[in-house]
Nucleic acid binder design. Sequence first.
DNA 1: ACCTATTTGTCCGTATGTATG
DNA 2: CCATACATACGGACAAATAGG
Lengths: 122, 122
Amino acid sequence: MVSLLHIDPASPGPLHERIAGSVRRAVLEGEFAPGDTLPAARDLAQTVGVNINTVLRAYRDLRDQGLIDLRRGRGATVRDGAVSRARLDGLADQLLAEAAHLGLTPADITHLLNERKSHESR
Amino acid sequence: MVSLLHIDPASPGPLHERIAGSVRRAVLEGEFAPGDTLPAARDLAQTVGVNINTVLRAYRDLRDQGLIDLRRGRGATVRDGAVSRARLDGLADQLLAEAAHLGLTPADITHLLNERKSHESR
DNA sequence: ACCTATTTGTCCGTATGTATG
DNA sequence: CCATACATACGGACAAATAGG
């Protein structure tokens, strides 16, 4: 049994998103290394106190983001490169949050990124 | 009322995948242009004879693939560039299917793609 | 090599919530 | 305030992979 993942019950946002966030953070902090197997969805669901499908939804999202592999009978395993992916996701979230806080539209953000890119290529 | 999307009941694969495939094909064939609104999930679910969540699952996947926008209260609308995305997805599926038919592993496919890339850059 | 019980994710459905117009 | 339409969470049946004998 491994807890390692404690989900704050009084934080904002959907459950599956908080769970995915916790896993992402755990990977980022090295609690799970590439190749490691995450807790089985059923187990994590029980320890956290949510339905298995909610955890599975989080796992599936993480898989779509390229962070983990998900195979029935085996479980969820951390993919190579997951750490850098997680770091990128974290930075992206940060950027988006700051931008939203400043009232920037998606178009503004796109424009800003293109600006930075053209700088970088000099 | 708009049918336009007929899902073959006797084809292989999960329902949500077949539905997503139908929508993708419809967009590809120009039955829905960028900006158009897709049938409401409930309606499509009823005409097809499945649960609304199965359709919503398909819609969400298509959104994650960048094909449509999904906003609650409004509906699902085809995004700009959806046609080319759909075409790419179609080609990718074709390539993967052929490769699988030849018994190629994912690693083989990656290798093959890298080969082609190096050719192209000459 | 075989079988079968367990583990573990996949899929579809039901009910309720919540933003939009 | 009401109707619309997607979003979220949960429940149960199922199938693939695996482990033991």
